[in-house]
């Protein structure tokens, strides 16, 4: 059975309309099954001031199965893999319900940033640090936010897009490839040339 397009489009429209929610979503290419979500780091946390991007993939079975979500932006957090952005959150696993939405899932990720669950970690190293020395954890997390999630990084991306566009690719194409390559311009070029 193909994915329920109507519901996904309604969800996207709802997120779009609700400017106050602090999360946004963007379709990646032609299919609504690949999206990129965006959330702001919660205040009074080491993630404050950061903008975090989340890769979202919707299975054909959505909303009967949870959306697949993974942080694109590197995050230092006990429940998020510092290596690949994999997320450990119950509602993205067995606690999913079709009454939840992409918006509630993104908001849950924001809540997860505020309240780590070190007992059930995704990243053992971060969790150990969180349990052992909270101050150290916060410092590292803040450092990572500044390094990977701050708005000034945007400038760097624009340069890469330009670089790829100059090689004769479309802007859209360049952005999509960069997203898929996690911002690595060489990876993006490989994707574009391979495709």
């Amino acid at each position: 059975m193909p994915i329920d397009l109507g519901r996904v489009q309604k969800e996207i429209r709802d997120i779009d309309r609700d400017k106050a929610s602090g999360v946004t979503i963007e379709v990646q290419g032609n299919s609504v099954q690949k999206l990129i979500g965006c959330l702001k780091g919660p205040r009074d946390t080491p993630f404050d001031g950061g903008i975090f991007y989340v890769n979202i993939e919707l299975d054909d079975q959505y909303p009967f199965v949870p959306p697949k979500m993974r942080f694109i932006t590197k995050v230092w957090h006990p429940n998020i893999s510092s290596a690949n952005g994999a997320i450990c959150l119950d509602i993205l696993k067995d606690q999913w319900s079709p009454a939840l939405t992409l918006k509630t899932a993104l908001l849950s990720l924001q809540a997860l940033l505020s309240s780590p669950q070190p007992d059930d970690p995704q990243d053992a190293v971060v969790a150990r640090q969180y349990m052992g020395s909270l101050a150290e954890y916060e410092a590292t997390a803040r450092q990572w936010t500044q390094t990977y999630a701050h708005a000034q990084q945007v400038v760097g991306l624009e340069a890469k897009v330009q670089q790829i566009v100059e090689m004769g690719f479309g802007r859209e194409q360049a952005l999509a490839a960069l997203k898929r390559a996690n911002g690595d311009e060489n990876g993006a070029m490989e994707i574009l040339l391979g495709a």
């Binding site: 006990p78 429940n79 893999s81 510092s82 290596a83 690949n84 994999a86 450990c88 959150l89 119950d90 509602i91 696993k93 606690q95 319900s97 009454a99 939840l100 939405t101 509630t104 908001l107 849950s108 990720l109 809540a111 997860l112 309240s115 780590p116 669950q117 007992d119 059930d120 970690p121 995704q122 990243d123 053992a124 190293v125």
Partner: peptide, 19 residues
């Protein structure tokens, strides 16, 4: 339920191999 899920994120899952 959704609100609950929102406010009480509960992490669970396998440990990632530390990389």
């Amino acid at each position: 339920a959704a609100l609950e899920a929102l406010t009480v994120p509960h992490a669970g899952g396998p440990l990632a191999a530390p990389q």
